[in-house]
Each structure stands twice: as structure tokens, then as C-alpha cells.
Design a protein around this nucleic acid. Structure first.
Lengths: 119, 119
DNA sequence: TGACAACATGCGGTTATGCGGTTATCAGAT
DNA sequence: ATCTGATAACCGCATAACCGCATGTTGTCA
């Protein structure tokens, strides 16, 4: 059951939990968005995202200067099921809903400024 | 989501995972049983069981010399749901089934000797 | 090419975690 | 009361995780 222990270890960090939660509610997010919504530092955001990347939970896509991340688990795979269970656990927390709200707000205020980026 | 991170942290250890799994398949187990099935040391078994005890996952019951542990989550509680999800994740692993088998075998061979204990 | 923006990473420090080994406690038997 | 076996608490060590800071890398634009 080493694999499962490793799985839970990857979820045993509040920052990573929040990142996954945000990504579950959006197709794609760039590092600066996650920084903004979570109010964390660039180094911290980037490091945890790479952590998830190396575990195969997320994939990256370069768009000019921005690096976008998205969930990358194959539909129907065990990881996909585990992610759904995670969503079930997190979704019952009001804090999670508030986080979603803050994300929408952040993305909206970002969209207002001229054309695209406001990081 | 600090609470959830803490939850996963408590599951991020293979020994604790196996202990929970064993307890899910049996009303009650004493420390020496868990030691025997998992092939671990007394100190290690006891420490992780106390860890789970302080988190509220298990309760203890003294029976003379032996200390018995059992799952203690209230039916219908969030913890109960989380435990069911955990069972779902672990149950799909053949290794988990093998562990159950070893437990049955251990308990059977223990029952053979005279009346009760053979730790 | 040079300046700048977004992101990644190496490094050092701090803290948390797991483990083995030892000691203390507790309940029952003599 | 004392002795014994089962379990719990403690200690010290090694390792791993997380963090901030500074620096490196990559891409854009003038």
C-alpha cells in the first residue's frame, strides 16, 4: 500500500489541496492566478505546482510568458476516482466554496483590465 | 482546509493505512495481533495506534492484559464517510486482500492454542 | 541586443516525522 | 506485596518536508 501512502502524502499539504480544488473548478490556471487567489508567494506556488506536475496530477502548457496548469488525470482512471472523492470531501466545507468565489472574483477583475494579463 | 490536510497527513503512512484497513475488517484487534499480522515491533505498533487514537479514529478497550482497539467514528459523520472512501481506495488493491487473508490466518492459528491468547 | 515579466530552482534554515531503544505504567497471577 | 507480561511514554537521532531568498531560465517587446 506504499502507493496509497504516497498519494495521501501528496494531499497532506493545505496549499496543494487548495490548488487542486481551484483546478477542479476551472479548465486552466496560470501560476500568477493561483498566487493571486491563494495570496501566496511565487516560489511557493510554483514549487507546489511542479510537485503536482511530477506526480502526474497536472500538466503544463506554455502560453508566451505564462505557464498554465490543468488537471491531467485520465477519465476513469483510479486517479480520476480519487480526485472525485477528494472533491466530495472538500466540497462539503464552506471554506472551499468561499475559495471558489474568490477565484471567480479574481478572474473577473483580471478580465476587466484591457485585454488579458494583469498579474 | 487545514483539517483536511491534517487528515491526509494522518493517512500518509503505510503502517497506519494498514492498521485502519485491518480494523475495517474486524470488530476489534489487540496490539499484539496487529504486531503479528504486520510483522512490526511493539513500539511501532503502539505508537501508531495511539496516534490514531488521539485523532479520534479508534477507541481502546482494556481486556485484562490486552488493549483492544476498534474504529470509533460515528456512523454518518464526515469521518465515517471518509473512512468508507478510504476503504474504497484500498479495497481495489490485491495487496489489501492479501493482508486480510494474513489476518484471518493469524487469528485462526491464535484461536487454536488452548483458550485465548498467544501473543 | 537589452530590459523586463513570469516562472523555475538551488541553497540554507527551521520544523515536523518516523524510528529504535529504553524506561515507566498498568493489570493480573502467585 | 511482588513479580511478570503487555502496553504506553519518553529520548535522541536521522531524514524529509516546507519555506523564503536569491538567482537562473525562458519568452516578449522595443
Amino acid at each position: 500500500m506504499k502507493k496509497e501512502a504516497q498519494l495521501f502524502k501528496s494531499l497532506a499539504d493545505e496549499t496543494r489541496l487548495k490548488m487542486l480544488w481551484l483546478l477542479m473548478g476551472r479548465e486552466e490556471l496560470c501560476v500568477c492566478d493561483i498566487m493571486g487567489v491563494l495570496g501566496t508567494t511565487q516560489s511557493k506556488a510554483s514549487r507546489h505546482l511542479r510537485y503536482l506536475y511530477h506526480l502526474g496530477w497536472v500538466s503544463d502548457r506554455r502560453d508566451g510568458v505564462w505557464m498554465n496548469y490543468r488537471l491531467s488525470v485520465a477519465p476513469g482512471s483510479p486517479e480520476d476516482k480519487q480526485l472525485k472523492l477528494l472533491a466530495e470531501i472538500l466540497g462539503s466545507r464552506p471554506e472551499a466554496q468561499a475559495l471558489r468565489g474568490r477565484m471567480e472574483q479574481w478572474l473577473a477583475s483580471k478580465g476587466q483590465s484591457k485585454d488579458a494579463a494583469a498579474c
